[in-house]
Simulated assay, not measured.
Amino acid sequence: MRLSSNRSRGFSVVELLVSVAIGLLALVFATRLITGSEQSKQSALGSSDSMQNGMLAMFSISNDAQQAGFGLNDPIIIGCNTRFSDREGYELAGATRGAATVHPLAPAVIESNGSAPDVISLYAGSSPTGTGTLRLVTDYFGGTRLNVDRLPSYGFAMGDVVVVAPEKRGGDCALAQLSAQPGAAASVTVGGTSFRFNSGELGLNFKGGKTRIFNLGPAKTLSLHTWSVANGFLRLRSTDMAGSSATPATVADNIVSIKAQYGFDTRTGSAFENRKGLGIMRWSTQMINADGEGETGDAGDYEHVSALRIAVVARSKTRERPVNGAACSTTVNKPVVFASKEPEGVTPVPMTVDVAVAGETVDWRCYSYRVFETVVPLRNAGWNP
């Protein structure tokens, strides 16, 4: 029996082309589906990364702020312009006082940079005897010996960090280390080339009977921290972390900004009763004349700081890839921080944050951002002797 000629011909060219076209369309749809799924996955992972990095940054800075001021809260030394040198290269933050630049010894010092990232310094001691327990009994005009009013056998040990400050507020103070173990004499010895802080003389003169000596604890636990952001990294300079005194250590990536504000108790005169507790009545990125005594940034103004408001801005690791040269649209407007009323009734001072990273060619709009905010009361602000 002979087969039909129509059956022996197989598929026609048209049928083959239709099959190929259907296959190509299916491949295109499958590719788009996989690509879209991968983009969604990367976006979700980038959002998760920004959440983790932002939380790490906020936890680190806020934890420092919660501890700030321990041993540094006495009215005699808070905000005093400090003579300080560190053999390992740490430097105290600078601040404006009137027309001058000083280096205040205070729980927190904010170097505000407008829409750019701030620099936040948080200082704390570690000694439970951080109040003025010794008084200078003779004038000091140099050298390494300080004659005091009693035997410093309790609470003072070789290597401890001390602050020497005039009892009259407004004078300069000096930070140094005890370079000898206190003995039977009513004196302490500072300086010494084998010690880290102020290895020589104090560099200032002090009057006998009008000067106090405060112990901030062992040098290895003195916590002087400075937080900053550069090139998308959160960085820390620290006196108690090896290798980070002069050169900052990287703490977290994809952090594009940190911002901070002082929370002031603006009561003045007899109405300011800090031993009964402090309140927040005004937020400011800059030091203000909070004590009403005429000079902005003096020691009294630092005493009126009751809290810090801190913000961290983190960005996603992955970025949007616009099609055909179109502009990115992941983020349209720059983040705004400190816009809410915290606490209720206090006027907020919102700030727009510049999230562009210097040196990067990628548009900042191609990334997504997360903002983390908190208010940290300075727990030692009211602990005044």
Rank of each mutant, 00 (worst) to 15 (best):
D363R: 07
G208L: 01
A326G: 05
V14H: 03
V355G: 01
P166E: 03
M51A: 14
L17P: 04
G191T: 06
S48M: 14
G98E: 04
R309G: 10
A249K: 14
L202Q: 04
E201C: 06
N380A: 05
F29E: 09
V312R: 03
V355T: 10
F272I: 11
G263Y: 05
V14C: 02
I288K: 10
V375Y: 07
P104V: 06
Q39W: 14
C80D: 08
G54S: 02
V355C: 00
T318C: 07
F264M: 02
A57D: 05
T189M: 11
G243S: 05
N81H: 02
L25Q: 07
R83W: 02
E38K: 09
L17A: 13
T318H: 12
W383G: 10
G132Y: 00
G232W: 06
T82D: 03
T31A: 15
A356W: 08
S329G: 07
S245L: 06
V102L: 01
R235Q: 15
A184C: 02
G46N: 12
G159F: 00
F11A: 10
N73T: 13
S187N: 15
R196S: 06
S270P: 09
H103F: 13
V305R: 07
P107Q: 01
V349P: 08
R237C: 10
D149E: 07
P248N: 06
A271C: 05
G217H: 05
G300H: 04
D74G: 12
T35S: 15
L3K: 12
G203T: 07
D240S: 13
R150M: 08
R9D: 09
T82M: 11
S48L: 12
Q181S: 08
V13W: 07
F141Q: 14
E91F: 08
R212W: 09
I255M: 07
T330R: 15
S329W: 04
V305Q: 03
P348K: 09
A242L: 13
R267N: 14
A252M: 08
V353R: 06
W364D: 09
F206I: 01
I77T: 00
